[in-house]
Design a protein around this nucleic acid. Structure first.
Lengths: 142, 142
DNA sequence: ACTTGACCTTGTAGTGACTACAAGGTGTAG
DNA sequence: CTACACCTTGTAGTCACTACAAGGTCAAGT
């Protein structure tokens, strides 16, 4: 039997996030002690461990809720979870590619910016490159 | 002289985002026509082009505001911008590494999950792996 | 001239996943 | 008793938008 602070310590989830999860229905409303404090059981610890671990994998809360709902319906969620994972892998790989492109572009801008003077009007300097992209600058120099 | 819709079309920024930017002070309040409509000039187009391009590089709005404030103070923002870019490159690289770790972990979980049965109690299946991580599962098998 | 639909206005609330108060009650070590 | 950490509920804020609601304006088509 734990208070919300105990649960927070055990799971690494803030008390505020726990209350938030209860509010959105991700975790059940717990029993209350005579003083009105929430009282949690070991099953709540396990549920929050699952939630927290899934969150570190950037699985959305509504997705997590859906997975947990399988158990409540006495259905095994596993193939559903496998599909969630497959989607996550794709999303992550897509995001990595986006970020790599972004990084490459900033690096190009940064390298080009080293050759340019400073300009308070932001017309012939690195800031102008941000505005127009690097391709147009090359054209103007040609 | 443009309406907000014209400005939106020219810059690819939604009218709603333009009003939002005005509200938070990122762009100046424009003149108004007799009918109360906002009236924008070419300088506003350029400013929004800069903002939009910086946003595609995931530069935060308050950071963008800071860059644009240099011009208003008649200071060249360029070395500041170069530092912003350097930080962005680091942040992006850090995020890429995080995502790569995350993807690798999900792939491991997914591979391991193929060998496991389905379990409505989520105790001996891939869902349990999510909760505990894969290392502990391997230990239990040993 | 009227109609209609696209555009404009302001104000407000919602998104997702939290986080941070404010105001007040409870428990316990010192 | 005091002080401080913990608890409660309720609300608002973060970030970068997005999406209404309610009402005004414009102009092409009838």
């Amino acid at each position: 039997m734990f208070t919300i602070g105990d649960l927070s310590t055990k799971t690494g989830v803030s008390t505020e996030a726990i209350r938030y999860y209860e509010r959105i229905g991700l975790i059940p409303e717990p029993q209350r002690a005579d003083n009105g404090y929430r009282v949690y059981a070991e099953a709540d610890v396990e549920r929050l461990h699952f939630i927290r671990r899934a969150r570190t994998l950037d699985i959305a809360l509504d997705e997590i809720e859906e997975i947990l709902a399988f158990r409540e319906r006495n259905e095994p969620p596993c193939s559903h979870v496998m599909r969630v994972m497959e989607r996550r892998i794709e999303e992550i790989e897509h995001r990595i590619r986006d970020l790599q492109r972004m990084r490459d572009e900033i690096q190009h801008l940064h390298e080009a910016g080293k050759q340019l003077p400073e300009d308070v009007q932001m017309k012939s300097c690195v800031c102008h490159l941000i505005q127009t992209g690097i391709r147009e600058e090359v054209t103007n120099n040609g």
